[in-house]
C-alpha cells in the first residue's frame, strides 16, 4: 500500500448516507490520512528535513518556549515570520500550512480571543457596528497575543511533525530524556488508533449493508452504544495480543529503541542558534 493510502482509498473512504456516526468515523480516518501525508512531506528535500531530528526537536522546542516568553507583539510577529520562512524553506507552502494549521487554530483560539476585544477594560478605539460594543486597545492587544501565540507555537510544532517521520520524532524524544513509557504510549497510540478506526468503520458499514432502510434516531443510538461496546472489547483483546507479541520477543517492561541518528556540525549549530532565541528574549526584558 502506498504511503498516505488506506484500504478505503487515498483520501478518506467511500462516503455514504450513513448519518453522524459514520461521518465522524470518516472524518477521523481522514485526519489519520493527514498523518500519512505528513510522512511523505518528511521524506522531501528541505531545510528542516535535512536536520537531525534531535536538533529539530530541541530547536523548535526552544522557539515554542520563546513564543510563550515574549511580551512584545513585534517579537511574536518576527517569530511567526520565522515559522513561515522555515516552512517555505522546507517546501511546505502557505496553502498547506493554512489548511493544516492556521485555519484550525484561528477558529479555535479566535473563538476564545474574541470576547477579550470587548471585555478587557480600556480606552475604546472603535465600536462594533450594530451592537455598539466598544473594542478596547488593551482588548485588541490581548486578543492579538492569544491568537499570535497560538498560531506561532502551532506552526513550529507542525513544522516538527511535517518534516520528521513520526518514528524519528519518538526516538528524538527518547534521546532528549522523555520517559520511555510516554514515548511508548505515543507510538502505540499512533499505530493502533488507525487500526481501531478502520475496524470501527468496517463494523458500521457491515451493519448498514444489512439494513433495509435508514435507521431511526433510537436505532442509531442503539447502534452507537453497541458499536462502542464491541470496539472497546476488541481494543482490549488487541491490547492483550500486542502485549503478548512483545513479551514473546523479550519485552520486560522497558522498551528499547535503536538510535540510528548522526549529529553533524550544522545540526548542533541550528539547535544552538534556536536556543539563543529564548535566552535573548529573557535577557532583553522579554
Amino acid at each position: 500500500m502506498p504511503d498516505g493510502a488506506t484500504p478505503f482509498g487515498r483520501c478518506g473512504c467511500a462516503r455514504g448516507p450513513g448519518g453522524g456516526i459514520e461521518g465522524l468515523l470518516h472524518g477521523l480516518v481522514g485526519a489519520m490520512e493527514h498523518a500519512g501525508a505528513a510522512e511523505s512531506t518528511a521524506a522531501r528535500r528541505g531545510l528542516l528535513q535535512a536536520l537531525d531530528p534531535r536538533a529539530k526537536l530541541i530547536g523548535l522546542g526552544a522557539l515554542i518556549l520563546s513564543v510563550t516568553l515574549t511580551h512584545r507583539l513585534a517579537v511574536l510577529a518576527a517569530l511567526f515570520a520565522l515559522a513561515v520562512g522555515l516552512a517555505m524553506a522546507s517546501r511546505l507552502g502557505p496553502g498547506r500550512m493554512a489548511r493544516q494549521v492556521w485555519l484550525g487554530v484561528a477558529l479555535f483560539s479566535g473563538a476564545l480571543a474574541l470576547p477579550a476585544l470587548v471585555l478587557v477594560p480600556g480606552p475604546a478605539i472603535l465600536h462594533l457596528p450594530g451592537l455598539g460594543w466598544p473594542v478596547t486597545a488593551p482588548g485588541l492587544t490581548s486578543a492579538a497575543f492569544l491568537l499570535g501565540r497560538a498560531e506561532t507555537a502551532a506552526s513550529f510544532a507542525a513544522l516538527l511533525i511535517l518534516t520528521t517521520p513520526w518514528s524519528h520524532v519518538l526516538k528524538a524524544m527518547r534521546a532528549v530524556g522523555v520517559p520511555v513509557g510516554l514515548v511508548g504510549l505515543l507510538g502505540m497510540t499512533h499505530r493502533y488508533i488507525f487500526l481501531l478506526l478502520q475496524t470501527a468503520l468496517q463494523m458500521f458499514e457491515a451493519r448498514r449493508a444489512r439494513m433495509l432502510g435508514p435507521p431511526g434516531v433510537a436505532a442509531r443510538r442503539r447502534m452507537l452504544v453497541a458499536g462502542v461496546g464491541v470496539l472497546l472489547t476488541r481494543s482490549l483483546a488487541l491490547a492483550g495480543e500486542v502485549h503478548l507479541a512483545m513479551v514473546a520477543r523479550g519485552y520486560r517492561g522497558d522498551v528499547r529503541l535503536i538510535d540510528d541518528f548522526r549529529l553533524r556540525p550544522r545540526d548542533g549549530l541550528a539547535a544552538g542558534v534556536a536556543l539563543l532565541v529564548p535566552v535573548a528574549i529573557l535577557l532583553g526584558g522579554r
Partner: peptide, 9 residues
C-alpha cells in the same frame, strides 16, 4: 498484532 513498531527497521 505482531508489527507494533513505527518502521520496519
Amino acid at each position: 498484532v505482531q508489527l507494533f513498531n513505527a518502521t520496519v527497521l
